[in-house]
Nucleic acid binder design. Sequence first.
DNA 1: TTGAAAGCGCTACCAT
DNA 2: ATGGTAGCGCTTTCAA
Lengths: 355, 355
Amino acid sequence: MVTIKDIAEKTGFSRGTVDRALHGRPGVNPQTVRVVMQVAAEMGYKANTAGVLLAARKKPTRIGCLLPDVGNDFFRDVMNGLAAAQKELSCYGLSLTVKHLRGFDEKKHLKGIDELLEDGCTALLLTTINSRRIRERIDELIDQGIPVACINTDVPSSKRLFYVGTDYYKSGRTIAGLLSMMAKTPQKIMIFTGSFDIFGHNERIRGFLECLAENGIGHEVLCQEQTLDDNIIGYKSACALFSDHPDVTTVFIVAGGVYGVCKALVESGLPAKPHVFSFDDIPDTVRYLKDGVIDATVTQWPYDQGYQGVKRLFDAIIEKNGNTNFVPRNRNLILSPLIYIKENIRSGSDTMEAL
Amino acid sequence: MVTIKDIAEKTGFSRGTVDRALHGRPGVNPQTVRVVMQVAAEMGYKANTAGVLLAARKKPTRIGCLLPDVGNDFFRDVMNGLAAAQKELSCYGLSLTVKHLRGFDEKKHLKGIDELLEDGCTALLLTTINSRRIRERIDELIDQGIPVACINTDVPSSKRLFYVGTDYYKSGRTIAGLLSMMAKTPQKIMIFTGSFDIFGHNERIRGFLECLAENGIGHEVLCQEQTLDDNIIGYKSACALFSDHPDVTTVFIVAGGVYGVCKALVESGLPAKPHVFSFDDIPDTVRYLKDGVIDATVTQWPYDQGYQGVKRLFDAIIEKNGNTNFVPRNRNLILSPLIYIKENIRSGSDTMEAL
DNA sequence: TTGAAAGCGCTACCAT
DNA sequence: ATGGTAGCGCTTTCAA
C-alpha cells in the first residue's frame, strides 16, 4: 500500500507539499501539482482512511438533516437509520442535527436549511421537494463547497451529490404485478392517494396503472381520493366510498391514512373482501397485514435510507477532504421495492438491522 | 470522546499500561486492571477505530473463506460481496483468501479449513455443513483464539461468532403465502428439491407444507424429487413427471436445477400452465421470471451475505484486538426472505449495491 | 509490573 | 512555494 511518504520520497517534495498538491489546497506550484498527481497515479496511491479519519478528529464535522417526519410514522425507521449511522461514526467526530418538519411546505423547508447552516452544519442530508427554489438553493450550497445529498425524495436536476431511495414508479408497477397474479378477472379499483401534489404518490399511481394497462385486462378505476396522509380523512372518505361502491374488488392505498381506510373497510360489511395493497410497513400496516386485511405491502427500505444517506455523505466529506474543485464519485443508491406479505413480514420484535 | 490518554491521566498509569489492562494483555497487575476497567467504564471509554486501524497496519490480517461455489451460480453474488468488502477494507491491511469447493463433503471441508490456516489466515468465514466433526473443529479454533463465523449456512450449536443468512423455514412459508394468495382452490403440487440431505432445502419444504396446512385448503403433493442442483437431472425427471401428471397445478423448485425444470415445463405442452415458484435470482431464474414461466422467486441477499460476513468478522477482529478471553458482541444478521416478481426484479444492468 | 517513546498515515501550523 | 514538525489515538518495543 503506497502512502504519501512514498510519493514524497519518489518526487523529492515534502509530505506536506504532496498532501497539498493531492488535495488541490492553495499555495502550491501548478508544475509541482502535475508531477505529484502523475506519480501518485503511477504508484496507485489511495488514501488510507484510518489516517484521514484520525487527523480529521481535530475539526469535527456536523451533518444537518431535514426530515418532514412530524406526524408521519414512515420516518420512524429513517430516523433509526440516521441514529445508527451517527452512533457508528461518532468516534470519527461526526455529529448529526435533525430538523423535524411537518409536510412539504417550500418556505418551511428553505428556512429549515438556513437554520441547519446557522447551527454550524457543514453538510446537509435532505428529504425535501423538487421545486425551483429548493433546487437553486442546493446548487448554491454545492457551489460554496457544502456537500448536499437527498434521501427518500430526490431533487434530480440539482447538483446534489447523490440520492438514496426507491424508484416510485417501479413500486407502483410492483403492486400491479401482484394484483395481476392474484386476480385474473377485471377489477373495480379504488385508489386512495396521499396528495395529488406529491410527485412520489403520482409516480406510484402512474406505475400501477401503466402496468395494469400493459397486462391487457380491462380494469376499471372507480375513484381516486386524497387522504392527505391523514387517518381521519381517509376513514371518512373511505366509509362514504365503500357505501357508494359496494362492488369494489381492489383497494390501492398509495400513501398514508392506511389505518383509516382499513378501519372503514373492516366496518363496511362489503359483500366480498376486496384485495388491498399498501406501501411501507408502519405498525398499522403490519397489523392489518397480519390480520389478513391487507394482502401485500411494498416497502422502501426506510432504515437504509437514513443509514446509507449519512454514511455515504460522510464518505464523500472524507474523500473530498477540504478539496475544493473536487467532485466526489457518485453514490446513488436506488433500492428495489420490497414485497411483504403476511409470511415474510418482520415480526414486531425483530430489529431489522443495519446493512 | 474519552481516550486512553484521558484514562491514563485519571488513573496515574501510563498509556501503555492502560492499553494492556483494557485488552487483557499479559504482564499487568490484576489490581491495576481492575482500577483501569472501572475508570474506563465510568468515563464511558470507547476505542477510536481510526486509531486502532492505523496501528493495526503493522500486522495485517487475512480472512480465509470457505465457499462451496463450484458449479453453483448462487454463490456468484456472494463472491461479489466478498470482493467488495475486501476492496473496501484493503487499506486497513485486510486480505481475503477464498477456497472454492464443490458441494458439501465433510472431509473436503475439513481439509479446506486446514489449508486456509496453513496459508496464514487468522480468521475464517465459512459456508459449510452442520456436522459433528465440523462443529468440533470450529470450537477448537475459537478456543485457540481464531475468530470463525458462518454465512449462508449456519452451524448453530458451535461457538462460531455469528451467522449471516436467511431463515430457510420462513422462506418456505413465504412461497406458501404467495401460492395461497394466487390460488384459492386445492392444488396438485410437484416439489423439486436439491437434496434430501441438505438441511436448508428440507427446512424450506417444511415451512412451505406447514404454512399450506395452516391455511386449511386440502392441497395434494404429487411427488418430491431430487435434482442434486443439476439442470440435466432436473430436466429429465421433470420431463417424466410432467408426462405422468399432466394435471399438476403448482411447481415448487426448492434449490438448483431451475433451468432444467423450467425447460421441461415449457416443452411439456401441459394443458394449463401451473404456478411456478423458485428460490434465488441467478440469471436462469431471472430470465424465466421475466418470461412469465416462474411466477415468483424468493431470494436470500447473496451479496450481503458475503459483504456483511467479511465486514462483521473484520469488526470482530478489530474489537477483539488481540484480547484473549474476550467474546466479541453478537453480530448475527438474519435477513428477511425477499420476494421478487417480474415487476420488481432487478434488471440485468442494475448492480445491486452494497448496503 | 510499569513507563517512555516510536510509529502507523495524514493534516495543519509555523518557518523559511 | 516548500519544508519541517507536531499531533490525532492506539499499539508495541525497549528499558527500567
